[in-house]
Design a protein around this nucleic acid. Structure first.
Length: 83
DNA sequence: CATTTGACGCCAA
DNA sequence: TTTGGCGCCAAAT
């Protein structure tokens, strides 16, 4: 487990229900402001259900991807009250 | 160990 | 507003 990975997971786990963070914000909070892409790689690899990775979206507001299907991600966010 | 890949982000046309 | 190209970084090959 690299430190960066743990940090990213920790930050994502901390996102309050009903709000979202961008990959860039997560990367910054995790210690590497330019690792937005790496954050995606990490979340893509990490299948832990305790991590609400569906609360992480792109900086332009679009959904981005999801390892269980973008449709699923959309539904989860909608359920939590995200525009 | 060297390359390629991909849930990204920013900027110039 | 929509493309396209480049930089960035962790993981997979």
């Amino acid at each position: 487990m690299s430190l960066f990975r743990e940090q990213v997971l920790r930050v994502v786990a901390r996102i309050p229900k009903g709000s979202v963070m961008t990959y860039g914000e997560v990367a910054h909070a995790a210690g590497n402001a330019r690792a937005a892409r790496a954050v995606g790689a990490i979340l893509n690899t990490n299948y832990d259900s305790n991590i609400p990775c569906h609360r992480v979206v792109r900086s332009d507001g679009t959904l981005g991807g999801y390892n269980r299907g973008a449709a699923r991600k959309k539904e989860l966010l909608k359920k939590e009250g995200v525009l």
